[in-house]
């Protein structure tokens, strides 16, 4: 475990230097991540105000806090790997990665974390400004704040393994746009991105329990809102650990099959 420490330090340094070269592209990714939750925030706030200040168990203020928290958790966990992998394979960059005596997922994780830290410079003020604009009030409990750190870390890792596995479809076909988009739609409906899951019909909620997506987004967000009981917290962490393990095994399996298929285009 600690053997990785100097390697990651090196990766962080290069990835942060690289990202300074692509400042604009970085800001654009960020803009999309801000607009989408902001749009749903406004929609549900409007609905809630019209319904006399609450929809289901959510008050107008809770909707605001929910979607601002969603913006942060979504930003914290998102990856661009499903778009990058295909490019990597088509241009033959993957060959270079294979030559290194370390699994390629590590440099991707380091890249992603580096990006997240850099973009905090923009994301932090945006969140504060939005909270101020929409007059959000939020009283967290200390234990849920403390629990948020490991929960978000697990959410990040499980999403990373899941999307890294799906990204490897690029070994078999380079036409991944429609598949990626389908994934984003499923994520939108079953992760709580579109609306708090309790506003869906019972059957959708039960389906969401069984899928990994709500444990990536809705669960950390609800935890921040103080809507998760200690018992549910344990269940949630259990689900996260299960999906993390499943994602890890899945990744190993596909990776082994994938590199056998890989034919090194380009150089």
């Amino acid at each position: 475990m600690f053997a990785y420490y100097p390697i990651y330090r090196g990766y962080f340094r290069t990835s942060i230097m690289m990202m300074f070269q692509y400042r604009i592209a970085m800001l654009i990714w960020l803009l999309g991540g801000i607009i989408e939750p902001l749009m749903y925030l406004v929609v549900w706030r409007t609905v809630s105000q019209q319904q006399g200040g609450a929809v289901g168990t959510y008050s107008t203020n809770e909707f605001v806090v929910y979607f601002i928290a969603m913006m942060m958790v979504s930003h914290g966990t998102f990856t661009w790997i499903m778009w990058e992998y295909v490019y990597r394979i088509r241009m033959g960059q993957f060959s270079v990665m294979l030559l290194k005596p370390i699994h390629p997922i590590h440099s991707d994780i380091a890249d992603n974390i580096g990006y997240k830290f850099l973009t905090l410079i923009v994301m932090g003020p945006t969140v504060l400004l939005l909270a101020w604009f929409f007059d959000a009030s939020w009283q967290p409990t200390y234990w849920s704040l403390a629990a948020f750190v490991p929960v978000l870390t697990l959410a990040f890792l499980m999403r990373f393994y899941l999307e890294w596995s799906l990204a490897m479809v690029a070994f078999w076909t380079l036409r991944i746009d429609a598949m990626n988009q389908a994934y984003m739609v499923i994520l939108l409906f079953f992760s709580g991105k579109l609306t708090p899951l309790t506003l869906f019909p019972e059957i959708v909620q039960r389906a969401a329990d069984l899928l990994p997506f709500r444990w990536i987004l809705a669960f950390p967000v609800e935890l921040l809102l103080g809507r998760v009981t200690p018992r549910d917290l344990l269940i949630g962490i259990g689900a996260q650990l299960f999906w993390l393990l499943a994602g890890y095994l899945f990744m190993q399996l596909i990776y082994r099959a994938g590199i056998k298929r890989y034919a090194a285009f380009g150089n």
Partner: peptide, 23 residues
Amino acid sequence: QSALDLCVALGGLAVVFSHTDTL
């Protein structure tokens, strides 16, 4: 892709209007 876009648009409307009559 277009069908998926439509799913997002109509699905969003369906959820919203299951909780309100007008937006």
